[in-house]
């Protein structure tokens, strides 16, 4: 049975996808093309002329210790955000899955943070951890811990990770919960009768059957950590202290818009473009053979 809506002719379908195509062209292909083009030049300090340097910008970048440091920062940051947000989401989803009564309310509450824009979330966390007026800082002070993420790079990293992961938990939770509920109850029951207690069941049945969801979320969360955390970092640390939270996407902004080094910034964009392309390809390859058991 053909369930899909089919359109006859060429013009109507074209018309219907046109807005999407135009938006993609204007806001993605055009700037991306421009970034590739600009990455091959160095503009003079006044922006009046451009000098062709070929791959010079890339060569310079890859030998720049700051840029390489930013790569490491990004890796640490992405891994932490992904692990924290997925880990917490999984625990909550497992708990919600076991809950029968009141799971609706529980679910709704867990979804709320997703509606908060990253920049707003950043401001929220910034206030809570503000070194002078922050509530959490004050309590930590009472416990004898002197919180100061403005000076301490590790604390700064911790804070942006938590702030970025927080908004992400809702999203991951929804997917994990859907994944868990797609596992037939009787399979879990069969395992219980076969002698498997909660942890054994989780390790040998639930986790393997959840792996398509986990993999999907892994890719999506890494992409999120790479790009969409800009707002959080910008509001909380602005990449500091001493670049300890300058992830790649923040460096594009810092070098391009603040440092006015447009050639280098464009080259960095191109590198990011390549990274996200690879991630996307990996994901699509995987989605194609999603049912792997």
């Amino acid at each position: 049975m053909e369930k899909r809506v089919t359109f006859k002719g060429v013009w109507l379908p074209l018309l219907l996808v046109l807005p999407q195509l135009v938006i993609t062209a204007v806001f993605f292909f055009y700037p991306a093309g421009q970034a590739v083009w600009q990455s091959l030049f160095i503009p003079d300090p006044f922006g009046l002329s451009m000098q062709w340097v070929g791959l010079g910008n890339f060569e310079y970048l890859l030998s720049d210790p700051y840029y390489r440091a930013s790569f490491v920062t990004t890796a640490v940051f992405s891994v932490l955000v992904t692990v924290v947000s997925m880990g917490v989401a999984l625990v909550l989803a497992v708990l919600a899955d076991r809950l029968i009564k009141g799971s609706g309310a529980y679910r709704t509450l867990l979804i709320w943070p997703y509606a908060v824009a990253p920049a707003v979330a950043g401001v929220l966390w910034m206030f809570m951890f503000n070194t002078r007026v922050g509530v959490v800082t004050w309590y930590l002070g009472q416990l004898g811990y002197d919180w100061n993420h403005v000076l301490n790079g590790t604390e700064a990293m911790g804070l942006v990770v938590v702030a970025s992961a927080w908004g992400r938990i809702s999203y991951n939770f929804l997917f994990f919960l859907a994944g868990l509920q797609a596992i037939p109850r009787s399979v879990i029951e069969a395992a219980a009768i076969d002698g498997a207690r909660f942890w054994t069941r989780f390790r040998t049945i639930v986790w393997p059957l959840l792996s398509p969801t986990t993999f999907f979320l892994l890719v999506v969360n890494i992409i999120y950590a790479f790009f969409e955390t800009f707002g959080v970092i910008h509001t909380i640390t602005a990449g500091g202290p001493q670049q300890s939270t300058t992830i790649l996407v923040y460096k594009v902004y810092a070098d391009g818009f603040v440092g006015q080094d447009l050639g280098s910034s464009a080259a960095q964009s191109v590198i990011l473009l390549v990274v996200v392309s690879i991630l996307t390809i990996v994901q699509f390859k995987f989605v194609e053979r999603r049912v792997h058991y």
Binding site: P184, S186, V187, E189, A190, A191, I193, I205, L209, Y293
Partner: peptide, 10 residues
């Protein structure tokens, strides 16, 4: 127990 839908581990 043998289940109606067999409940094998897929």
């Amino acid at each position: 127990m043998v289940f109606q839908n067999y409940a094998l581990y897929p």
